[in-house]
């Protein structure tokens, strides 16, 4: 266990492994995304109530799911960095924050576009949309806090504290927003009931969720590699890789 953690904390090892990983994962991700999108857009049947507008679900739900999971990834990296002071965990946290923020923003924008044909307005203070908005603020807070600190080691630890507090708070926020919405639910907006989703619609959705997870991993790894290249620009092992390439 310890040897693995130590290896993961070693930049040369990580740089080599992540290079191989990205080379494989990036084409696979693109393929999964294209297949899933085409399947969802062109092959899957339309919803009997919402018609074709429901096809937005194939990007809305995956981005929302991965955005939420991304916050936990970030907070976990923050905890590792606080407890073991591993530099690589700082880099992971720093790399995951903007990716998560972009995914959250995508979930919000697609949700708003979906709302127009379904509910007739661009924005509805629906429980899930409101929770995503708050998640976006949480992400932006982490990014802004990191940028505001001059000492980047201290910045990473400050972001770790903030994201841990946020992690504990996220379930409470989700639950409270849920209750708030059920208390105030306007009569004009009918919630589509929890009906069982047909397999012909479910499979492309699952495919897209897997694709978005892969995309999150690829984007975080690429960010980490770019950051590591700059941090270790004077190091011999990196110079060797560069001149060898």
């Amino acid at each position: 266990m310890w040897t693995i953690i130590h290896k993961m904390g070693s930049p040369p090892w990580f740089f080599r492994i992540s290079g191989v990983l990205v080379r494989w994962l990036l084409p696979i991700t693109v393929m999964l995304l294209v297949c899933g999108a085409l399947w969802g857009l062109l092959v899957a049947p339309p919803d009997f109530r919402q018609g074709n507008s429901y096809r937005i679900i194939y990007i809305h739900v995956p981005s929302a799911v991965v955005a939420l999971a991304g916050y936990y990834v970030m907070a976990f990296a923050g905890a590792v960095s606080l407890i073991w002071r591993i530099k690589m965990a700082d880099v992971t946290m720093r790399a995951a924050a903007p990716v998560g923020a972009v995914l959250t923003a995508i979930a919000l924008v697609t949700g708003a576009i979906w709302g127009k044909p379904t509910w007739g307005t661009w924005w509805v203070w629906d429980a899930r949309i409101t929770s995503m908005l708050i998640l976006l603020f949480l992400y932006l807070g982490v990014v802004a806090l990191f940028e505001a600190y001059e000492n980047k080691t201290a910045a990473a630890r400050a972001c770790a504290v903030l994201s841990l507090v946020g992690t504990v708070n996220i379930p409470i926020i989700y639950k409270s927003v849920d209750w708030w919405y059920s208390l105030h639910q306007p009569a004009s907006i009918k919630f589509t009931g929890e009906s069982a989703i047909d397999a012909s619609m479910l499979y492309p959705l699952l495919l897209m969720i897997v694709a978005f997870y892969c995309l999150f991993a690829v984007a975080v790894l690429l960010n980490m590699r770019a950051e590591l290249t700059w941090q270790h620009r004077e190091a011999g092992w990196l110079r060797q890789i560069v001149s060898g390439a």
């Binding site: 806090l145 504290v161 903030l162 946020g166 708070n169 409470i172 926020i173």
Partner: peptide, 27 residues
């Protein structure tokens, strides 16, 4: 505590803590 060492941390402070205050406001 997180923003005390940052010059002009006031706006950042509200970004950090308003989302965390949501449950308190709702309850």
């Amino acid at each position: 505590a997180l923003t005390v060492s940052i010059r002009r941390g006031g706006l950042l402070l509200s970004l950090l803590i308003i989302p965390l205050n949501v449950p308190v406001l709702i309850f």
